[in-house]
């Protein structure tokens, strides 16, 4: 089975989340029958919150002041300020039939490929074997199958799983711009110094892969574990209005 990949450039937060949702729906409904990797960035920087995460924690005055939008992910997990990062989505049909991959197994497949990819860039990445999350701020804690360098978190991730497919989001830090998230939360539960100490970014490691390089390398790494070959994807499934509406649901009016 091929693994499809696409460098999807720089998009708004709502477009990014709706496009990933559409990819996952394509897998869930059977229009997409091969894993798809989409790599992208955010402009302007935006906060994403998990599918069910409450907006009560958000400081909307600060968000309006800085004109930072907020989007809701179709996946779970905590809040992330997407700035100075490479983001990827892996939407893939489940391969185990009636015994669907569990969330842990799906994470393991993608994390193994991600570790191999980062090592190919010269990064001494490791896959964390366990851990407990502090749910509000994604990068303040590291869970099982998340990626660390020197014990510090490099990649935040979140998952959605349906009957036939899964979607995994990953944020690979390029710089420490994500730490500004704390300015937009009423009670972040972690201070900036602690957050910085718990994370590491590729910029500080002297590595700056491009979107296209990351997408192709990740696809090649996934084929190593699942067979097939990496193939560039031309065109994405169209987003639906409900997918856009969900992404925009934590509305911030400037």
């Amino acid at each position: 089975m091929p693994v499809l990949w696409i460098d999807d450039g720089v998009q708004t937060g709502a477009a990014n989340m709706a496009r990933d949702h559409a990819l996952w729906r394509g897998c869930e409904e059977g229009q997409l029958t091969a894993p798809v990797i989409r790599v992208y960035q955010w402009k302007p920087a935006a906060v994403s919150i998990g599918h069910h995460q409450s907006t009560e924690q958000l400081d909307f005055d600060a968000l309006r002041r800085d004109k930072v939008s907020v989007v809701r992910r179709p996946t779970g997990g905590g809040a992330v300020l997407h700035d100075e990062e490479l983001t990827f989505a892996v939407a893939a049909p489940l391969l185990r039939g009636e015994r669907r991959e569990t969330a842990k197994q799906a994470y393991a497949v993608v994390s193994d490929a991600l570790v191999a990819t980062l090592r190919s860039f010269g990064v001494d990445a490791k896959c964390r074997s366990d851990g407990r999350a502090q749910a509000q701020v994604c990068f303040s804690s590291t869970l099982g199958h998340e990626i660390t360098v020197g014990g510090r978190k490099l990649v935040g991730s979140a998952l959605r799983r349906g009957r036939r497919s899964f979607l995994i989001h990953g944020s690979i830090l390029l710089g420490d711009g994500h730490c500004r998230l704390l300015e937009y939360l009423k009670e972040p539960g972690v201070d900036a110094a602690t957050l910085r100490a718990r994370c590491v970014d590729l910029g500080s490691l002297g590595v700056q892969p491009g979107r296209r390089d990351l997408a192709a390398a990740l696809a090649n790494a996934l084929t190593a574990s699942r067979g097939g070959k990496a193939v560039p994807l031309v065109g994405l499934p169209a987003c639906t209005e409900p997918e856009l509406a969900l992404a925009k649901s934590p509305r911030v009016d400037f």
């Binding site: 998990g50 599918h51 179709p74 779970g76 969330a103 994470y107 869970l143 998952l159 959605r160 799983r161």
Partner: peptide
């Protein structure tokens, strides 16, 4: 038919 979702710390799962 999907009738809801269950969210854990890192994942959202459909319920049918």
């Amino acid at each position: 038919e999907p009738m809801g979702t269950i969210e854990t710390v890192k994942a959202v799962e459909e319920v049918y």
